[in-house]
């Protein structure tokens, strides 16, 4: 084994032109290989297991043309946005209230950590008993899933506000309003985006799972409905829609964040 220096400097060094080509070429090759593997899987295992790429594309086109794709996406987004909004409000307000009393925070901590571990989706069948098969059971599940993410992120954000910055601002005579706007807001902004970036895609994903269990419309309904009648092409098309939807949302949120936090070095946050 040769002893080439193993610093991470070679990772950080700017990519040369040939290296760039190697990376792009490699990505293209890997993407082609994945599609080829898909096609091969369809040929060897049969259409019941693997819908051929072409058929999946045709199905997607058909769904796009007859408008079902859009109406399913809208149905899913409706629940996701509503659940996200409710959870967002409570998830932001509660930490601010708790912050005023360290004793209350300590008192509820074990309860918060324990209930956080409840697999919230498992409540769906019970909620269906309660609310029937409308949007309500999904909405509750989505709200519960998102609430804990926002709650924990906001809590971390409040704690992360540098107290020395605040007392420094007081010393130089800044008003409390000014402090709230200048220091607390800018310190919380990165956490706000972290929460948004983690929570909103999660809300969409939770809605889709909710739709597997109970629904009459939505992307999840389409996937699960297709599975129940062994329409593998439909399952593939639905999964592609779900994947594209969430990845598109991620891309948009990333774009907004990059724009809003231009002054910050970029990092990939951990999922909560």
């Amino acid at each position: 084994m040769t002893d080439v220096p193993a610093t991470m400097a070679d990772v950080a060094s700017p990519p040369t032109a040939s290296r760039k080509w190697l990376i792009h070429g490699g990505r293209a090759a890997l993407a082609l290989a994945l599609i080829a593997g898909w096609e091969y899987g369809a040929r060897t295992l049969g259409p019941l297991f693997f819908a051929p790429p072409i058929e999946t594309a045709q199905r997607l086109w058909a769904l796009a043309v007859n408008g079902q794709m859009l109406s399913d996406i809208m149905a899913t987004l409706r629940v996701a946005v509503a659940g996200f909004a409710i959870a967002g409000i409570f998830g932001v307000i509660l930490p601010f209230l708790l912050r005023r009393s360290p004793r209350a925070t300590e008192a509820v901590e074990p309860a918060v950590l324990f209930t956080m571990g409840i697999p919230k989706y498992a409540l769906a069948p019970w909620l269906i008993l309660w609310f029937g098969i409308g949007d309500m059971p999904k909405l509750v599940v989505v709200t519960l899933v998102v609430f804990y993410i926002v709650f924990i992120t906001t809590f971390a954000g409040i704690r992360g506000v540098d107290r020395r910055l605040i007392s420094m601002a007081r010393v130089i005579g800044a008003s409390e309003r000014r402090i709230a706007r200048e220091i607390i807001w800018t310190s919380l902004l990165p956490f706000f985006f972290t929460g948004l970036k983690i929570a909103f895609p999660r809300a969409v994903s939770a809605t889709i799972v909710g739709e597997f269990l109970v629904s009459t419309q939505g992307v999840g309904r389409y996937i699960e409905g297709a599975r129940q009648v062994s329409d593998t092409t439909g399952v593939f098309a639905g999964v592609v829609i779900a994947l594209a939807l969430v990845l598109a949302i991620n891309a948009v949120l990333n774009g907004i964040e990059r724009w809003a936090l231009r002054w910050q070095p970029v990092e990939r946050e951990m999922e909560l």
Binding site: I223, G238, L243
Partner: peptide, 8 residues
């Protein structure tokens, strides 16, 4: 959304 892959 990995959970959405469950039916697959």
């Amino acid at each position: 959304p990995k959970l959405a892959f469950a039916p697959l």
